[in-house]
Design a protein around this nucleic acid. Structure first.
Length: 542
DNA sequence: GAGTTTGAAACT
DNA sequence: CAGTTTCAAACTC
């Protein structure tokens, strides 16, 4: 009672915000915000303590132990109701089944009860003396508080990084979520982690270094485990997805995925195009298979990292955590992104100017508009450049930490902070330009009581203007991305044992401007070169 | 469906 | 924190 009463004094709004962030970085939430466990606890209480109405009638078949696989984070401030609704598994858009506990002694107020553990009210369950309902909400809240006091993460999803939701444990859903791991890990002794006693197995995830299980067979290479799966296609696809996710997240710089846990089983998995598979790691594969019945403690042996990536052990020998580094980590820096953004703004302005000069359609107002746009853009650009020079040190933002720039709350160029614009801000700046156009154009026309003809022709000009701006901006951005891909491929090739990696170069779809990317030299493998080369393309065009 | 096994949660 | 107990799901017959 006292727990929930105590924590309920915390400011709710702030905590809600806090946990939204926690949700985003759930996998590393504790690492990021170790100083706010109480806040997490409070937010969970707030999320769980709200009285909600029961869910719709259950489906035909009870769902067991869904909590282990329940992907819904409590931190989203979901109410029991919403979670109850989500509790209905949806696979391929088809609503599935819902939990029905059979608790007898716990009053459904302990984590033994999967309904309670999932943060939902019991409904149509087979439990006895159930207190996990609206009628006993006071007791329920008390139980929630007690549970959270024992374990602030008690209501957190146990499976992290899972891109899938189809974890109801049924055989047809046995698609291993390769990206997912059990946060706490299992502690199985007799089941070999190949039965649903095992939370990892039940959640369709491989056992990881978080587990303390014995005689584990729930790892990729295990034959028994393979036999449980009808086909390897699902696993294959999972790893493709894993690789893709890792690459994407790494390229973007998602920090919470920067520490991709290398499971003691999964570290032995052969990822598709990893070039870091040293002899030692290959040896480890064999060794692990041999030592399957006497598992060696997790060590930081050379591990197979995400494809094409560099891996850095968290500590030299002590930790088995790996830090995933995208091939683009050293290529795409935050400064480059900023430069690209400012470049696109300039390109947009130049498009306006070029179109106006070409067609000669711009009247005086149009010239004013144009000059205002260009000056505005140039002003912004110069401001951006200034800010780039004085902004946060590159090391703080580059690579897998780029996302921290967006976490600051002000997304992009802030008049107060003076920070350079983010891509999203860039889009907003386009809107600002729209507003400027309207402000400079329409009122004048209205003031002069201009004819509709004048307005419509001006609108046509603006339409062309926007089209041209959009075309050029997208073209530049397309070039940039293509070049980025090339650089990533080249870097990946450098880490790959295979000398030949196909560089996915595409022809520019329009305007006939094509950049040769296969000739990108090693020296150019940095973001500045990329931006500069794009800049050169822009110069050529203009 | 009853009984057993199992491992997480709770407790000491 | 480790050992023990309680609990309910998973499993077997």
């Amino acid at each position: 009672m006292e727990q929930s009463a105590t924590v309920s004094n915390f400011p709710q709004r702030k905590l809600a915000k806090q946990l939204e962030f926690t949700t985003m970085c759930r996998a590393s939430a504790n690492a990021i915000l170790p100083e706010h466990p109480q806040a997490q606890l409070q937010a969970k209480l707030l999320a769980l303590a709200k009285p909600q109405s029961p869910p719709p009638p259950p489906q035909s078949k009870p769902q067991r132990r869904l909590r282990a696989a329940h992907p819904l984070p409590v931190a989203t401030m979901e109410s029991p109701k919403s979670r109850q609704q989500n509790n209905i598994e949806v696979k391929d858009g088809t609503p599935k089944k819902q939990k029905h506990c059979h608790c007898r002694n716990s009053r459904c107020l302990k984590l033994y009860c999967e309904c309670f553990a999932a943060g939902i009210y019991c409904d149509a369950c087979n439990c006895t003396n159930c207190h996990n309902n609206v009628e006993h909400d006071a007791a329920r809240q008390e139980a929630v508080g007690a549970t959270l006091e024992r374990n602030p993460n008690a209501f957190q999803p146990k499976i992290a990084n899972s891109p899938h939701k189809s974890l109801d444990g049924r055989e047809e859903a046995r698609e291993v979520t390769a990206m997912a791991i059990h946060n706490k890990g299992c502690n199985c002794k007799k089941s070999g982690c190949l039965k649903k006693y095992c939370e990892c197995f039940q959640a369709n995830v491989l056992c990881s270094e978080n587990c303390k299980c014995m005689d584990c067979k729930n790892f990729e290479e295990n034959e028994e485990r393979k036999a449980l799966f009808h086909g390897d296609h699902a696993n294959f696809m999972s790893y493709i997805q894993q690789a893709a996710n890792a690459a994407i997240n790494g390229a973007i710089g998602t920090s919470h995925l920067g520490t991709l846990p290398a499971s003691k089983k999964r570290k032995n998995q052969k990822l598709f195009f990893s070039g870091t598979a040293s002899d030692q790691s290959i040896h480890r594969i064999t060794q692990f298979q041999q030592e399957n019945h006497l598992r060696a403690p997790a060590t930081s042996s050379s591990l197979l990292s995400a494809p094409g990536s560099c891996t850095i052990s968290a500590s030299s020998m002590g930790s088995s955590k790996l830090i995933y580094r995208s091939p683009l980590t050293d290529v795409l820096r935050s400064q480059d992104v900023k430069e690209l953004c400012s470049l696109l703004v300039i390109v947009s302005a130049e498009a306006t100017k070029a179109l106006a000069e070409k067609n000669g359609k711009m009247d005086k107002k149009g010239d004013q508009l144009e000059s205002s746009l260009v000056s505005s853009d140039q002003e912004k650009h110069s401001k951006v450049e200034d800010n780039v020079q004085t902004s946060i040190p590159d090391d703080c933002l580059s690579g897998d930490q780029v996302d921290t720039a967006g976490d600051s709350g002000s997304d992009g160029s802030d008049a107060q902070t003076g920070r350079p614009p983010s891509p999203s801000t860039l889009a907003l700046m386009c809107d600002e330009q729209d507003a400027m156009v309207r402000a400079t154009g329409s009122p004048d026309a209205a003031a002069s009581n201009g004819s509709l003809t004048n307005q419509s022709s001006q609108g046509q000009i603006f339409t062309e203007l926007y089209a041209e701006q959009e075309r050029i901006v997208l073209t530049k951005f397309w070039n940039f991305l293509n070049r980025l891909i090339t650089c990533g491929s080249i870097k990946e090739a450098m880490y790959s044992p295979s000398p030949k990696i196909k560089l996915g170069i595409q022809q520019e779809p329009q305007n006939g401007v094509t950049t040769t990317k296969t000739e990108t030299s090693h020296k150019e493998l940095n973001g500045t070169s990329i931006v500069k080369s794009v800049d050169q393309v822009v110069d050529k065009m203009s």
